[in-house]
Design a protein around this nucleic acid. Structure first.
Lengths: 223, 223
DNA sequence: ACCCGCCTGTGTACATTGTACGCGCCAAGA
DNA sequence: TCTTGGCGCGTACAATGTACACAGGCGGGT
């Protein structure tokens, strides 16, 4: 059916901006932002490095496009739900996104050329808050503290993956090993008594702070 | 007096790990992390690039050392002040530090080999909270939400410098320009009515969220 | 049918970067 | 005086982003 090939299987479908961006996201997910090289992305698509530049003007443009795809994946607060549950769902959705795409944490909020999905997302969030009774100033407060917390949590707690408690313990061991024991008694107590406990899950930790902030905003809105 | 030079002025004092790290910090402050190349640092010290490697094992080791110097600059909560004012001062100190050294925002909390100043800082913060009556679990909650917010605010609000309202307006113009007007009404209202107002200062914004969180923690501690 | 111009994929080439390797120098100890 | 160890450095190489020019094919106008 294709105009370019009548054969049953085309081993190399045509390049396109979308395919380049998708491949780049997939590679960044597994290799990180440093591992994201034009040559690797080209290899994934079985193309020559320079071919990418027909669809992407340079590496920065590629990253801009990748980020906008991610913004499109965040759940938008569009329904008629209460602002608090809408913001909560949106926060969890964004946190999950940042967990899937750790390389994006420092990039989502610093784009100089935000894409349409980016703008649409912010527009929807602001709209939800405005229609819930937040005046413009309160929207600024709420957005600032919520996004600050969400991105900051991702940055500080999810930047290194702890899949098992054992990995965690090993890492803690490595961190303390070069230094004399008992130099940091409070830190040592904290690590042994809390972080290394089997039940530790950063998901619960995230929701504790999130609810603390949402409750604070609710009080401020009412007061 | 020096054993290496009797002349009045030595145009090129000896290299040392400290001098290399200081020069690197200074350069990163003005050129960012991408601008931080071994060759530039060497140039600042009037040395050859490879000379740095006698004092720093590689670029990552250099960055580790730079970060630990920064941790040493954060005001420690050591006095007998109330935990709330101690945490507030520490937060403001950390925010100012991140404003002075924007390149460090993504790095402070992701070091695999934390230096002594890093560990000492965390130890002091945890100690302050513990002695104020926080149990280990509440320390985890408090530290997580506070640091999340502080680093996240730095990441989301200070990643691009807005020194004047005019620059701000120009940037907003650039961001909207490629897209059809009225596609994002809530966002447009927000930008014109709030962000571009002359009095906008992210410092006040930071303290609003900070106090909201501190008050929430105080309630949780009492309840 | 033919040609012409554009669009896409590509090969080559170069500047920039981190850093391995080994040489020379100089001071301090034997 | 001879040796040794550390320090500064010149050279070299691999990885990376990307400028430039070229080829092949497809479509539209004649």
């Amino acid at each position: 059916m294709s105009t370019t090939a009548m054969k049953d299987e085309d081993p190399r479908p045509a390049l396109s901006r979308q395919r380049v961006v998708q491949a780049a996201i997939q590679h960044a997910d597994s290799a990180g932002l440093d591992g994201l090289t034009m040559r690797k992305v080209a290899e994934m698509l079985q193309a020559a490095p320079m071919s990418l530049y027909r669809h992407v003007s340079n590496r920065d443009d590629l990253i801009d496009a990748m980020i906008d795809v991610l913004f499109g994946e965040i759940a938008l607060p569009l329904g008629s739900a209460h602002w608090k549950t809408a913001m909560r769902d949106r926060a969890l959705s964004l946190r999950d996104l940042l967990a899937r795409h750790r390389w994006a944490i420092g990039l989502m909020e610093s784009r100089r050329r935000p894409g349409p999905a980016n703008l649409r997302h912010h527009d929807a969030v602001i709209g939800k808050l405005r229609s819930a009774g937040f005046d413009v100033e309160m929207v600024a407060h709420a957005y600032s503290v919520l996004d600050g917390y969400i991105y900051g949590f991702a940055l500080t707690r999810m930047s290194i993956p702890f899949d098992t408690t054992d990995e965690m313990a090993a890492m803690a061991q490595d961190m303390f090993e070069p230094w004399p024991a008992n130099d940091y008694p409070n830190l040592a107590e904290f690590v042994t008594d809390h972080v290394m406990k089997p039940g530790y899950d950063y998901r619960e930790e995230f929701e504790y702070g999130l609810d603390l902030i949402l409750n604070g905003l609710e009080e401020a809105l009412a007061g």
